[in-house]
């Protein structure tokens, strides 16, 4: 959705970390992106390539680790898999599912020098 702002946020986060942890180049970045985070991974990858130019992450490789969507069905009182916000519960077919996981976007690991 707003991949350009997210890419800018990621590069800022890398710059903050570089100051805090004293490194000057980022070679690889592992991002954890939930299935329900509303992020187009291909678009984000493209934006990151553009935004990271002439920064500490110029030319870095970005890896995307997808996290599965997870919800809690109020009708079944059970944890269920969710692939889209409007999915019905796979067990009872009702739509009383609250998303409990898989909507996160995190920078999880970096290779730096």
């Amino acid at each position: 959705m707003h991949e350009m702002s997210l890419a800018e946020g990621i590069v800022q986060l890398l710059e903050d970390q570089a100051r805090a942890q004293d490194f000057s180049r980022v070679k690889q970045v592992w991002l954890s992106i939930g299935e329900l985070a509303g992020v187009e991974v291909e678009a984000l990858d493209f934006c990151l390539e553009v935004v990271s130019r002439n920064t500490l992450a110029d030319g870095a490789r970005f890896h995307f680790v997808r996290q599965p969507g997870e919800g809690w069905c109020l009708a079944c009182s059970q944890r269920v898999a969710v692939h889209a916000r409007f999915d019905a519960c796979p067990l009872c077919g009702k739509h009383q599912v609250q998303v409990t996981g898989g909507d996160e976007m995190r920078v999880s690991e970096l290779e730096v020098e």
Partner: peptide, 13 residues
């Protein structure tokens, strides 16, 4: 390698 586990929206949040 550096583990950071930071939310991308953490600055906004």
């Amino acid at each position: 390698m550096v583990k950071i586990e930071q939310d991308i929206l953490s600055k906004n949040d």
